[in-house]
Simulated scan of single mutants.
Amino acid sequence: MYFEDSDFSKALRYDKVVAKFANYYLLDDFFIIEVNEGEHFNWDKLNSLLDALRDHYGNHKALAYIANRVNSYSIDPVLWSYFDKDDSILVAASIVTYRDSSYMNANIEKQMAKIPLKRAHSLGEAINWVQYLKEFN
């Protein structure tokens, strides 16, 4: 389910950013990204995303990340190595999958991530998990 089609979009305050390759939804302590169909999420797109996040939140905000994988796209799993750095603003992530193949890819990404990463079967499951992270309570 797309974020804007969910009840969460009506209940939560957010700003929407439309990029060439994805839509981002920027909330208080987390953001949701929905990458467009057929894209390949690589270093250039990650840097574009991080620039948008720093413009919105500043350089020192702790954030969680939700990848709402409603579309089929590829991602370079090595990107998770970026978030090992001390200057990373991401403290946790959740990948919402709607297909078995996406869930299997999320398993591989979980092995590469150094931050907590939850695989979820629904947007609600991911949002609820993020909202109760100790970093935000």
Rank of each mutant, 00 (worst) to 15 (best):
F83C: 08
E109H: 05
N107H: 13
L63I: 07
V78P: 02
P77I: 10
D87V: 02
Y65W: 15
D86L: 05
S72W: 01
M104N: 13
I108Y: 10
A120D: 04
Y73T: 08
T97D: 14
I66Y: 00
N68C: 06
T97Q: 13
N71C: 08
L117E: 02
I115W: 01
Y98T: 13
Y98W: 14
A120I: 00
K118W: 01
L90D: 05
I75P: 00
R119F: 01
I89Y: 01
P77M: 10
R119W: 02
Y103Q: 13
N68E: 12
Y82A: 11
N105G: 12
N68T: 10
Y82E: 13
E109W: 00
S88A: 11
A93S: 15
R119H: 10
I89P: 01
N107I: 11
K61P: 00
L79E: 09
V70Q: 08
D87F: 01
A64Q: 07
N71V: 04
S94E: 09
S94A: 15
V78M: 14
D76E: 14
A64R: 03
K61W: 06
H60Y: 12
N107D: 13
W80Q: 15
K114T: 10
N68W: 03
V91F: 01
N71S: 13
A93H: 03
N105Q: 14
K85W: 13
D76A: 11
W80K: 06
A64N: 06
Y82T: 12
D86A: 10
A93M: 11
A93V: 05
F83I: 06
V96P: 03
L63P: 00
N68V: 08
T97L: 09
A62W: 04
E109P: 01
A62S: 12
K114W: 02
A106M: 06
A113C: 06
A92R: 00
S81Y: 08
S74K: 12
A92I: 00
V96I: 11
W80Y: 11
S74F: 04
I66M: 10
M112A: 09
T97W: 07
L63N: 02
Y73V: 08
K118G: 05
P116G: 08
S101I: 14
I95S: 06
R99A: 15
T97G: 12
L79R: 02
I108S: 07
K118E: 10
T97E: 12
A113L: 04
K118P: 05
N107P: 02
Y65S: 08
S101P: 02
D76T: 11
M112H: 05
A92G: 04
L117C: 07
V96Y: 00
L90I: 10
L79I: 08
K114E: 13
K85Y: 14
K110V: 00
A67R: 04
A113E: 01
E109D: 12
A92C: 06
T97A: 15
D76M: 09
K110R: 14
K61A: 09
I66N: 05
E109S: 09
K85F: 11
I89V: 11
L63V: 06
S101G: 07
A64P: 01
N107R: 15
A64D: 07
W80F: 09
N107T: 12
K61F: 09
L117A: 03
A92S: 08
L63Y: 03
I75V: 14
Y98G: 13
